[in-house]
Structures are given as C-alpha cells and as structure tokens.
Computed example of a mutant assay.
Amino acid sequence: MAAFAEQQVALRGEASLPKEELQNHCDQLAMATPGVEELRNNHGSIESRQWTLIANGATPLWAIVRAKDGAPDGWAPKPGLDKLDFQPPLEPALIPGSSHFLAYAPVVSNTLADSQKSAAMEQVFGAAQGELTWRGRKYSYILTPDLPCFPFLQ
C-alpha cells in the first residue's frame, strides 16, 4: 500500500492538469477539507496527529490540530486503530521511522458537505485505496506521504 501511495503522489505530480484546473481542485479542498491524520509507527506503537487547513490571507495553510492537554507536536497514541476495520489494513504500510497522511471522507454522503469532502478528496488526493468504519459509518481512505496544494504553518 505504501508503494501505491507513492505512485499516486507521483501521478499527481506528473498530471497534465492545466494550472487553472489544479487551482480549482485546491480551492475545492480549502472549502471542503476531508478528515486528515498523520500516522506513524513509533517502535511498534501507532501514533497520530490531526491536520486541518486554516485561513491565512489568500493562501490556506496546513496546521496541526493540538489537543488541549496534548503534546506540543500533536502526536498521541492511537490505540484501537484495529477497531476501525481498515480494509485493506494500514499497519503493513506504516514502516517504523516514517509517517503517512490518511485522508478520509464518508462513502455515503448524507449532506452536501459530505459530498463536497468526498469529491475534494478524490480530485486532490486520488482514488480511494480502501475503506474504514468509524462509529458505524463507512469512510473511504487514501494513504499518502505528503499533503497537497498548500504549505505548512511554520
């Protein structure tokens, strides 16, 4: 799965989308951002931190969502990842010493916002690599080594 994720990034980088169309996809991502978490294997323990887009003038920025009592870098243990029933499983792709971003959106859109998040995820991140179940609801997901379109908050 990690190889597939890297292949998807390469394909996005080589895509012959006109600059205007790419900008439209990035604008859509800014308006309807799917869920995004960064996952890592820290010596056998899976950890995560949540990411979101924040407004910064004309250019949105990717920023870590920190829990009030959480670590300054946002990382926290992610026990129970196996309870989300990832199909295919994520663990084989989470190589110790590296991290990947997990973008996810509902499979069935109950609202316009859900539909927009799903569309943005597919257009910007690429085709879904699998599904997970969270709180009784199915989500499609994509695992990728980097975040598209916008810079990181420094």
Rank of each mutant, 00 (worst) to 15 (best):
M1C: 05
A3T: 15
F4L: 13
F4R: 13
A5K: 03
Q7I: 03
Q8T: 03
V9D: 00
V9A: 12
A10H: 01
A10W: 00
L11P: 00
R12D: 12
R12E: 12
E14T: 09
E14H: 15
L17H: 12
P18H: 00
E21R: 04
E21W: 01
Q23M: 04
D27E: 06
D27C: 02
L29R: 09
M31C: 13
R40K: 13
R40C: 09
N41Q: 07
N42T: 04
I46G: 03
E47Q: 13
E47V: 02
R49P: 12
Q50M: 14
W51N: 01
T52D: 00
L53N: 03
A55T: 09
A58C: 00
R66A: 04
R66N: 04
R66D: 05
A67T: 07
A67E: 11
D69M: 11
D69N: 14
G70C: 06
P72E: 09
P79R: 13
K83Y: 13
L84I: 00
L84F: 10
P89Y: 00
P92L: 03
A93C: 07
S98A: 14
S98I: 09
S99Y: 01
H100T: 01
F101M: 06
A103I: 11
Y104N: 10
V107A: 06
V107H: 04
N110M: 09
T111F: 03
T111S: 10
A113F: 04
S115M: 05
Q116I: 05
K117Q: 14
S118P: 03
A120V: 13
M121I: 05
M121K: 12
F125M: 11
G126M: 09
G126Y: 05
Q129M: 15
Q129R: 07
E131V: 11
L132M: 14
T133A: 10
T133G: 02
R137Y: 04
K138V: 06
Y139N: 07
L143T: 09
L143V: 14
L147D: 05
P148R: 02
P148G: 08
C149M: 05
